[in-house]
């Protein structure tokens, strides 16, 4: 639990970033680049694209730090959201016709490659355990929607189920994940 984000730290970094304090960007990078890079790597499977996604996420944060609202989530989540969006853009551009389900099925679990004492390691481990314990039907729906940015309709096509079923699986999976994280000591407002 020691690595749960501090709202006060995020608000302080935001104010420093708005004032163009480069040290705040350095601090944010050192704290959160491992999460953003791992996420981009999961999405693209390509180190070069992942670097681009991470770079663009941090540059976007630097250009418009006011857009980060600490009341709606942590700075880590915000940066990962920016990196995810860019990674999905790159993926769509490079492989528009890709078979997402095939790709998903062949995706090996990404193991942590940084030391356990890195900030966020305990939290990341808790997330992996909660995700691993989700029913596989939920996991697939979440992965297609989250990692590849697919719509309900696209998820339904990929899974070969009606749209309503795809939506139900996604929502049930997300709810279950949030509940399990909360039960593990990571409340929703700490995400």
């Amino acid at each position: 639990m020691s690595d749960v984000r501090s709202l006060a730290d995020d608000v302080r970094l935001r104010a420093q970033l708005v004032a163009a304090d480069e040290s705040a960007l350095t601090e944010a990078y050192d704290l959160h680049a491992p999460s953003a890079y791992a996420l981009a790597l999961r999405i693209t499977g390509d180190p070069s694209w992942s670097e681009d996604a991470v770079q663009e996420a941090f540059v976007e944060l630097w250009r418009h730090p006011e857009r980060f609202d600490p009341t709606t989530g942590s700075l880590r989540t915000w940066l990962c959201m920016l990196a995810r969006r860019r990674a999905i853009d790159l993926l769509r551009r490079q492989s528009a016709q890709r078979d997402h389900l095939t790709r998903l099925a062949g995706q090996a679990p990404v193991e942590p490659t940084v030391e356990d004492d890195v900030v966020g390691a305990a939290q990341a481990k808790a997330v992996r355990e909660c995700v691993r314990d989700l029913p596989v039907l939920y996991r697939d729906a979440i992965a297609l929607a989250y990692y590849y940015g697919l719509s309900y309709r696209q998820v339904a096509v990929e899974l070969g189920v009606p749209e309503g079923t795809a939506k139900s699986r996604l929502r049930s999976g997300l709810r279950l994940l949030a509940e399990r994280m909360s039960a593990a000591g990571y409340p929703m407002d700490a995400a």
């Binding site: 491992p34 670097e51 709606t72 990962c80 940084v114 997300l174 709810r175």
Partner: peptide, 18 residues
């Protein structure tokens, strides 16, 4: 709820950038 779940998903893995 979805935002929180996405926040957790985003941080499920760590990898040292180049």
């Amino acid at each position: 709820l979805a935002r929180a779940a996405a926040g957790w998903l985003a941080t499920s893995h760590l990898a040292t950038p180049p």
